[in-house]
């Protein structure tokens, strides 16, 4: 170990880039998540419980055929968003609880930490969507006319969810009353994304063609803006 010009100690002698540090943090988080499976279990169990409750009380025939594309899109996104909100804060709360926050501050640059945690949250969201969306389609008999557009909406919607919540997770990890606070702070930021994603999924399921998939583009723009702003603001809350 030796200090760099700025006086910061780095663990590697080879010069590390932002991306390599971010990937290192991402892989470390995945490894520790694989050992405990705390975040993934809580997110998936929350999602499955909600899905079963919705499916049991509505079933696949209760709603009129013509109403289904819209109502099913609403239900699907409510399940996805609230399951994500139940577990995504773990990525930073974990560091705070195990007391590894200070070591992490010393061993990587703030933007790299943010990117690593963002990759980890996106991985969690990917796992969640891969399991819940097919299960929802099967259980509810959800017919989708444009599968390509639907998949694109799920991918960009997931990106937006991760982008909008990671910075909030970093803040609430350092506050009191973490669990309830995370949903309360994230939800207003996510609402434009949720409205867009519901509209986009509905359109894909109905099969109403719109040139250029506008909702997919809006969700992608939301994700890009939130990631950019978060990268700029993250050092402020990280180096306090």
């Amino acid at each position: 170990m030796h200090p760099t010009k700025s006086g910061r100690w780095i663990t590697q002698t080879v010069s590390s880039t932002y991306l390599s540090e971010a990937v290192a943090i991402w892989l470390r988080d995945l490894r520790s998540e694989f050992r405990t499976r705390y975040a993934v279990n809580s997110i998936l169990m929350f999602a499955l419980t909600t899905l079963v409750a919705v499916s049991f009380s509505i079933g696949s025939f209760r709603i009129e055929e013509s109403e289904r594309p819209f109502l099913y899109a609403v239900l699907l996104w409510i399940i996805l968003v609230f399951s994500a909100l139940s577990g995504l804060s773990r990525s930073f709360v974990k560091e705070q609880e195990s007391g590894t926050m200070d070591i992490l501050k010393l061993s990587a640059r703030p933007q790299a930490v943010f990117l690593g945690k963002l990759f980890f949250n996106l991985t969690m969201l990917g796992v969640l969507e891969l399991i819940i969306v097919p299960a929802f389609i099967l259980l509810m008999g959800y017919k989708i006319k444009f599968p390509g557009c639907f998949v694109a909406m799920m991918v960009t919607g997931g990106l937006g969810l991760g982008a909008g919540t990671t910075l909030v997770a970093a803040m609430i990890a350092q506050a009191d009353a973490r669990g309830a606070l995370f949903s309360a702070l994230s939800f207003p930021l996510l609402l434009p994304l949720i409205i867009t994603a519901i509209k986009g999924s509905e359109r894909a399921a109905y099969g109403i063609s719109a040139a250029g998939w506008p909702e997919v583009k809006i969700a992608a723009a939301y994700a890009v803006i939130m990631i950019t702003i978060s990268l700029l603001l993250f050092p402020l809350i990280w180096e306090e």
């Binding site: 867009t196 939301y222 809350i237």
Partner: peptide, 17 residues
């Protein structure tokens, strides 16, 4: 600091609205 960061973050979602 957190309040400042949150209010800037929230302000960025307003154009979408």
């Amino acid at each position: 600091v957190f309040a400042g960061v949150y209010s800037i973050l929230a302000f960025c979602t307003v154009p979408f609205l």
